[in-house]
Amino acid sequence: MSLSFRISLSLIAGIFFGFIVVVLSCLLTATSFAEFAGEIRSPEIISAILLSLETSIAVVLLALLFGIPAAYILATKRFKGKNILDTLVDLPIVLPPLVCGLAILIAFGGDGIFNRFDVLFTVKGIILAQLFVASPFLIRSAKTAFESIDQDVMDAARTLGASEFYTFKKVSLPLAQGGIASGVVMTWARALGEFGATAMVAGCIPYRTETMTVGIYMHAMSGDISASIALSLILASFAFTTLIVFKYLGTIGDGNLETRGAAA
């Protein structure tokens, strides 16, 4: 690599990284510690934080419950229409969340097929919207993990007298745990940051359906910028922690055998 090329590369990359750092640090410089401390004691902010945590954790649990079987089937079974199903799982990832939100709104609205469920403008609605948008991340990650398990290893379990369920429980799940864990982290992060679908389905009712992201938008629009900043900083710290955890999981990831082996 020539020197001038190296310098131009560094320069371009530097501009990019600089931009990110400068923009994000604006959040910090626009507030003071006293102001921040005051904001996060406000009942509305605390309510939004708790609601976000509650709903995103519920989403993770539900995604595990529905996503693991879906991922396992997609990874191990052969059936007609599997490709369609596989694409369907990815759809919410590429679809704008607003579109997902609108679809839920119509499905559960007055004339919708699910209109007897009381979901709109409730916490249930938030969970549903976040689940819709975030669960594909878990399914995708778990599916890849299940797929990477050697078929012979699962066959070996069967010939040793293990039923399909026992094999799933004692072989597939433990071997896929790295992938499932990183899927959980991604899904949680996505649910926590969900705004479009949530706002569409649950609206922005303070103390009832105001999640952190919805709160940031509402407060910023109504001129209460310091509340927005406080929520944003908390969200950013969550995101940063998630990223570190995710990187850590990535390093152990499928290599969990290695770490286990070292411990043994």
Binding site: D150, D152, V153, D155, A156, A157, R158, T159, L160, G161, A162, S163, E164, Y166, K170, V171, P174, L175, N256, L257, R260, A264
Partner: peptide, 30 residues
């Protein structure tokens, strides 16, 4: 008869050991 009820042992070319279990646990699995 499903494979786990046939009572037929299988030894694979690539060994197919359980990587998340130690030697004892591998042998004990069945």
């Amino acid at each position: 008869t499903p494979p786990h009820k046939r009572g037929i042992g299988f030894v694979f070319q690539n060994y197919a050991l359980f990587p998340h279990l130690n030697v004892y646990e591998n042998v004990e699995f069945g």
